[in-house]
Design a protein around this nucleic acid. Structure first.
Lengths: 157, 157
DNA sequence: CTTTGCCTTTGAGCGCGCTCTAAGGCATAC
DNA sequence: GTATGCCTTAGAGCGCGCTCAAAGGCAAAG
């Protein structure tokens, strides 16, 4: 399933969830793992691919966010499933979601289909928090350049 | 200067800074301190008004974000200037700006008019970071409800 | 064989942003 | 007087999310 099909799917979903905002098509590319991804990756390769450090990958495993198999030598061996979960996690982290919430979300997934509404609610709540944050910033920015312009920046900010 | 005047000012500023986005008028009200604000407030009153704890107010003072005078008894006494600075700080914090950056911004203010461009740049950089974060979240959300819908939530997230 | 380098584990350490504690001062009520 | 309640200070503690250290295993290169 490529980015275009994903977008089509999303359009269909959006029809049922009018509160969702459109997603920039460019961004969906970030979802895709490279097509020529090896079957199994070492921790160094996984780190390289995700932009996380090996330390962080071990940490995520330790706290139960992801399961990773070992090879014959006892080394971590990341398969597609592990990789896409890690990419997913790193994306949520990058958007500012706390690890506890991610953990909760993954537990919901584990619990099965009937937790869908809770999962959607959780994500939408998070999105709302980010949007609020953005508005806070725009406000701060407005105050700032207002003050810079009006007071010349010499008055108390 | 009330919220309406502030908005007018901002419109004028926006003419010179087309990259700025419009600000929700409702939000500008948050800027305003109550009109009947007492001349000087105790730490408990200041905490109540800003939604921060007294502990946090002392902490902000300790790390040099704000200067607060004392009354005859040695108690902190917050004047308008202190209050508006604290509101400003809390707004930036709420938007996710690290304390170090806020500190830097306030130093720039202290240094005088010639630091205006740096201040604006700093704020715009922060806004860009938040916007990136928002896009990250929208992406994560898209992935999520895509997966919920397509896989029924049973597959790996 | 040793060296090199990546890997393992457990457990400790760190920077951030608070948050709380301890020990005590002031001031109003009784 | 004393009890209360809010205030002061310096400094310790905490939760989060990593980040690093120590001690050692595996394996290909020379």
């Amino acid at each position: 399933m490529n980015a275009t099909e994903l977008l089509d799917r999303r359009a269909a979903i959006a029809a049922h969830h009018p509160e969702l905002e459109p997603v920039d098509p460019d961004l969906l590319c970030l979802l895709e793992l490279p097509e020529d991804l090896p079957e199994r990756l070492s921790i160094a390769e996984a780190a390289e691919l995700t932009g996380l450090t090996a330390h962080t990958l071990r940490y995520y495993e330790r706290i139960g966010l992801v399961d990773v198999r070992r090879d014959a030598a006892g080394y971590r061996s990341y398969d597609q499933r592990a990789m896409s979960r890690i990419v997913f996690i790193s994306r949520l982290r990058a958007s500012g979601m706390p690890i506890g919430t991610i953990s909760h979300y993954l537990e919901l997934v584990l619990q099965g289909d009937h937790t869908e509404p809770q999962r959607l609610a959780l994500m939408q709540e998070h999105r709302d928090r980010i949007q609020r944050q953005l508005r806070e910033l725009q406000l701060a920015l407005a105050v700032t350049d207002y003050k810079i312009t009006v007071y010349g920046g010499t008055a108390a900010p």
